[in-house]
Design a protein around this nucleic acid. Structure first.
Lengths: 152, 152
DNA sequence: CGAAATAGTGGGTCTGCACCCACTATAGGT
DNA sequence: ACCTATAGTGGGTGCAGACCCACTATTTCG
């Protein structure tokens, strides 16, 4: 993550480039912190999905997060090894595995979110609180392609 | 690039996550378009650097863009094959290779920038013109960690 | 001049991510 | 009961990015 000495201005004029660049910085820093705990981004995502939406069958997790079922299996496996989720066969359909966050899992999730907020604090340091909110709002609209309510 | 059905809200509350996610979308789409022309992001970056700052010795390119010299060599090699840059030994120090954009190179660069702007149009579609400008300004400040002038 | 530094390059590694196939266990339809 | 579909899983593949080492050509320094 060496910052470039001097980036070509014609790139900096492209929002695409800025977005990609700052996004990558965000991703990398977050990934680094998670890596220190032996985790990757998907662990956070899966944990968050389970906490937000309640228990999932793996298949649904895979659909919701658009990740390959096989990859979900691996992530869940690691989360289970950490004791952060429980896996139990659905008695009604024993093919399905129902994944549930445990209390330690919720605690861990809060810690991971704190990590993310720490990254945020670093990354958004140049911005005032109001600007951070504004940025968040703009990104949010970009994210879900929702036109929302233009303020201008 | 399948959009997820429904992303955990607790992730969407993290600017880090949004930034990383939208950034990745930007990067991926741009990369896709460049790939159609058999290029990667570095080709654009190198071309832009040469156009903006004038001819470079490869070593300086590598420093400026913080890329491994060996990787720069490969990119420059490909750009040269396309006829977009000229390589010439520095007569004063024959170890050095001076890289210069050619006219076709400049034309190509403009096309690539147009691609980037097309991606931008897609990506920023939900935002009004004023909002795009604002987003760009915020990202720009994030990018170079410049506190700038808080407006609030 | 000889030794040490530097520019470029070829070829390799390692990592993370996305993807995919084959196989099992189990269910469901007829 | 039989055939087909589905959930999960293990073990891959291919790709891109970042990095790194060994080697040559050349220069610079003592």
């Amino acid at each position: 993550m060496n910052e470039p000495i001097d980036v070509p201005p014609s790139l900096l004029d492209l929002s695409t480039y800025l977005l990609s660049r700052t996004g990558k910085a965000a991703r990398t820093r977050l990934a680094e912190r998670l890596a220190r705990r032996g985790l990757r981004l998907w662990h956070l995502a899966v944990l968050a999905a389970l906490a937000d939406f309640g228990p999932h069958v793996q298949r649904d997790l895979s659909v919701r997060l658009s990740v390959d079922p096989s990859d979900i299996a691996k992530v869940v496996d690691e989360l289970a090894a950490a004791g952060w989720v429980d896996r139990s066969r659905d008695p009604a359909d024993r093919r399905r595995i129902r994944v549930t966050v445990t209390d330690p899992g919720r605690t861990a999730l809060r810690e991971l979110q704190a990590e993310a907020e720490a990254v945020q604090a670093e990354l958004l340091a140049p911005l005032s609180a109001a600007e951070r909110t504004r940025l968040h709002g703009l990104l949010r609209r970009l994210f879900d392609g929702d036109p929302g309510t233009p303020e201008d």
